[in-house]
Amino acid sequence: MAVRVQREDFDVGAELAALTAGRADIGGVATFLGLVRDTAGGQTVGAMTLEHYPGMTEKLLAEIEAEARDRWPLDATLIVHRYGRLEPGDRIVLVATASAHRQAALESCAFLIDWLKTRAPFWKLEETAKGGHWVEARESDDAAAARWGKSDKPAR
């Protein structure tokens, strides 16, 4: 039940401990941790800057989280997404879903990251030897999001 958009790094262990503290009803937690890669399209990436739409980002992430909670019996959820300048190896995004049973946790975690990639207003600027360039949206990301079925709201 938490969404955070922040410049600062996060501690995965501390986040998961806080998510499940005092919750003996939770049987499993699924997590996705996104990291900055050092290559993209054959180019070495020196760094990446993530831009977002303050206000709408938090609203969209909360909507996506609410959609997951409608679809699966979840006891706790967390989305942390960073913005600003990040270097290879840095953490970008953490999605964690907790449920009594593993299937709901694993499926909803995959759903959240797939939907987040195509619906949350973030844009990546990669720095390579050829200069900065904006990462283009990938059809494979659209396909990954589409496999979860339709939303009642228009996407891109």
Binding site: G34, L50, H52, Y53, M56, H81, I92, V93, I113, L116, K117, T118, R119, A120, P121, F122, W123, K124, W134, V135, E136, A137, D141, K153, P154, A155, R156
Partner: peptide, 23 residues
């Protein structure tokens, strides 16, 4: 989110951006 045929009114906040690339 809105389409190009969506109505706009004075006072609206209209944002224009490329397809998102988060995650």
């Amino acid at each position: 989110f809105a389409g190009p045929d969506a109505a706009i009114r004075p006072g609206d906040e209209v944002a224009l951006f490329p397809p998102m690339t988060g995650g």
